[in-house]
């Protein structure tokens, strides 16, 4: 093996040209921006995001579109034109009472999305607070709360959800409430795990040493750093809640007609699946598409937020 011996030329000053190589060309980027850039390279996830945005937009403006172009709304009956196939007048056909399925399908999409999003928000708030408390304080508090979570988690939730909806009047509010009874636990556990890891990091210790109060530490230092897993959990909660609502609709516990969710629309249409397939087709496609996009986007987001998966 050749030995490298030091030469005087090794100690010469760098030329200006050579110095330039040391400067950082790429400006520093935050973790969030980094994740966003990584997400953008995931074609499927981005397509899903665009489709979701499209669905949300049409769900918002669906009633207006139906009214502008065909003069229909979601609740007007037309007993002379029941179960019509799709046509220029009724883009998605009509249902058993002659109501426009285009308007109803998009209203259903809107309500289903709302159920999903509100349920996710409730889970987020309750889950982060409970998980934060468990993780931050640890010890006895953690143990007691954890036990409560475990009891709730072992409930056959379906039975309790049905009981709750029967006790209260059926409405979107009731459904969201019932779904949230056990929904937040998963979030709480994830936040708890994250906080437990983070709370012994130097910057938290520093903040504590400087006398910051727990609430400030929690929301200024801990929660933002646990945001990755929290966001991923949310993207999974939304489709789960949409699914759960559809399931309740199948049991007749869905929203009150003439309002509709995708679940109630599908349930209404199943009985006539073989004779009027379009009544089931559009809501079912929309539901599956929403679920599909949330799932793919959620996967993409997890990959983007998880540096381990960085390739």
């Amino acid at each position: 093996m050749n030995e490298h011996t030091l030469q005087p030329s090794d100690f010469e000053k760098l030329s200006q040209e050579e110095k330039k190589g040391e400067t950082v060309v790429r400006e520093s980027i935050s973790a969030w921006k980094d994740a966003w850039l990584r997400l953008q390279t995931n074609r499927m996830a981005m397509i899903s995001l665009y489709i979701l945005a499209f669905i949300v937009l049409v769900a918002i403006f669906g009633q207006w579109i139906a009214h502008q172009f065909t003069g229909n709304d979601f609740s007007t009956n037309d007993l002379k034109a029941t179960n019509q196939a799709p046509s220029g007048d009724h883009w998605f056909g009509t249902d058993g009472l002659g109501r426009d399925m285009f308007a109803r399908t998009w209203m259903g999409a809107g309500i289903s999305l709302q159920v999903g999003i509100y349920a996710a928000i409730v889970d987020l708030i309750v889950g982060v607070i409970m998980g934060g408390i468990m993780g931050y304080f640890g010890g006895k508090v953690d143990e007691i709360l954890n036990r409560i979570c475990e009891i709730l988690y072992s409930i056959p939730s379906l039975l309790i959800v049905i009981l709750l909806i029967v006790v209260m009047e059926p409405s979107m509010f009731t459904i969201i409430l019932a779904l949230s009874i056990t929904g937040w636990i998963n979030m709480a556990w994830i936040v708890r795990g994250q906080i437990m890891q983070l709370k012994n990091q130097e910057y938290v210790l520093a903040a504590r040493a400087l006398g910051a109060n727990p609430v400030r530490i929690m929301f200024k230092h801990l929660v933002p750093n646990a945001m990755g897993p929290i966001i991923v959990t949310i993207t999974m909660t939304v489709p789960n809640a949409i699914f759960a609502e559809a399931f309740l609709s199948f049991l007749g516990l869905g929203v009150q007609s003439p309002a509709a969710s995708l679940g109630t629309l599908i349930n209404d249409a199943i009985k006539a699946m073989t004779v009027f397939p379009w009544r089931m087709l559009y809501p079912a496609i929309l539901l599956s598409l929403t679920m599909l996009c949330f799932n793919i986007f959620g996967d993409g987001l997890r990959d983007a937020l998880d540096p381990k998966m960085k390739k």
Binding site: S75, T76, N77, L79, G96, L97, S257, P258, D268, K271
Partner: peptide, 12 residues
């Protein structure tokens, strides 16, 4: 489902 349809038709 049937009671619902009848109720909605009458309401209208």
């Amino acid at each position: 489902e049937l009671h619902q349809a009848v109720a909605e038709a009458i309401a209208e």
